[in-house]
Amino acid sequence: MMKGPGALAGIRIVEFAGIGPAPFAGMMLADHGAEVIRVERPGAVIDRTDVLARSRRIVALDLKSAEGVAQARALCREADGVIEGYRPGVLERLGLGPELLLADNPKLVIGRMTGWGQQGPLAHAAGHDINYIALTGALNAYGRKGEKPTPPINMVGDFGGGGMMLAFGMLAGLLNVRNGGEGQVIDCAMIDGASLLMSMIWGFRAQGIWQDERGTNYLDTGAYFYDTYETADGKHVAIGSIEPQFYAVLRERLGIADDPAFNPQNDREGWDALRNRLAAIFHTRTREEWCALLEGSDACFAPVLDYDEAPRHPHIAGRRGFVELDGVVQPAPAPRFSRTPAVTPHAPQPHGESR
């Protein structure tokens, strides 16, 4: 990992400590050079294995005391942005509501991360990623044909539609201020973000090329040429040979180029039968043998690697896609900048420090 000031050098963010998506946004901002000051409660123990807490300066404040609130307001007065992941109204009850903070600092960008949003009938209800993506229709798309919806862990609501959307919102708000605008509040709701991530699928539905029944489409395991297969050694490989030219390479490498059964690639009626044919073929060799035959070709192939294998793969290792901090292997900052490379991350501190 190269050392550098980062593209966000000079930006100061105050992060009120939480879990999941808001810390992920803070991590992304810190990775790229922002000074992120994480406000923790006194006595909080910071686990050095908490990847999402890396590269922060920790400040321990008792936000239930007048002194702690005053110190937090002072931090926000000197900051460019604030991020928090409390339920609606909590920040206000602490005496740190957006109206007060913006009165102190009119250029402040305040990012508020919630599941349901700051307003609406469910705004004050508890929930998790699985609930947010269920309400948006996204969860209905994940799973195989004839089976119940399967949540893709918490990638869609918490991180894709939540933390990453919050990081984008913060940067947009900060850029607006740099261009002469005023500070503002960003209502970042995971239901909004999860819906936005499904934009292409909504477009496909409108075009009549996406069926509502899950597991019957090109990208949801419906297509036999976009799926995973078990190999002879009990491991798995993934293929995504959608385009005709890539599908042709797959057929040639698998020895089925002259089999007429595989000619009507887009005939959905034959997908299940051809999936069984491919399953039998992939089960004849080990994953390593399939890698030797297919990896690096235009068949759109990759082995399905586990957590120990992924960082050691030659391509990922060659790009230094993972770093190790105090014995904890974790993804390196992304994306890559040519002139302002990301700051080398450091492990979170074990204990809060007082300001």
Score class of each variant (00 low, 15 high):
residue 276 N to P: 00
residue 282 F to Q: 13
residue 50 D to P: 09
residue 7 A to K: 10
residue 296 G to C: 04
residue 219 L to E: 08
residue 206 A to H: 12
residue 140 N to L: 09
residue 110 I to P: 00
residue 269 E to I: 10
residue 333 P to V: 13
residue 70 A to G: 14
residue 87 R to V: 14
residue 273 A to L: 05
residue 72 A to E: 09
residue 66 A to K: 06
residue 55 S to V: 13
residue 49 T to S: 15
residue 149 P to Y: 12
residue 143 G to R: 02
residue 2 M to C: 11
residue 71 Q to S: 13
residue 175 L to T: 09
residue 66 A to V: 09
residue 123 A to M: 02
residue 247 Y to W: 07
residue 271 W to H: 00
residue 242 I to W: 15
residue 350 P to Y: 02
residue 344 T to V: 15
residue 303 P to F: 09
residue 89 G to E: 08
residue 99 E to I: 06
residue 25 A to S: 14
residue 290 W to F: 06
residue 321 G to P: 07
residue 53 A to D: 11
residue 209 I to K: 01
residue 89 G to Q: 02
residue 146 G to Q: 14
residue 199 S to E: 06
residue 297 S to I: 01
residue 33 G to I: 02
residue 202 W to C: 10
residue 235 K to W: 04
residue 21 P to T: 05
residue 16 F to T: 09
residue 7 A to D: 13
residue 45 V to W: 05
residue 52 L to E: 12
residue 15 E to N: 00
residue 301 F to W: 05
residue 189 A to K: 03
residue 110 I to S: 03
residue 118 Q to C: 07
residue 245 Q to Y: 11
residue 56 R to C: 08
residue 294 L to N: 00
residue 47 D to E: 14
residue 257 A to E: 13
residue 23 P to V: 01
residue 122 L to C: 00
residue 94 L to M: 15
residue 239 I to L: 09
residue 179 N to P: 02
residue 41 R to T: 02
residue 252 E to C: 02
residue 106 P to W: 15
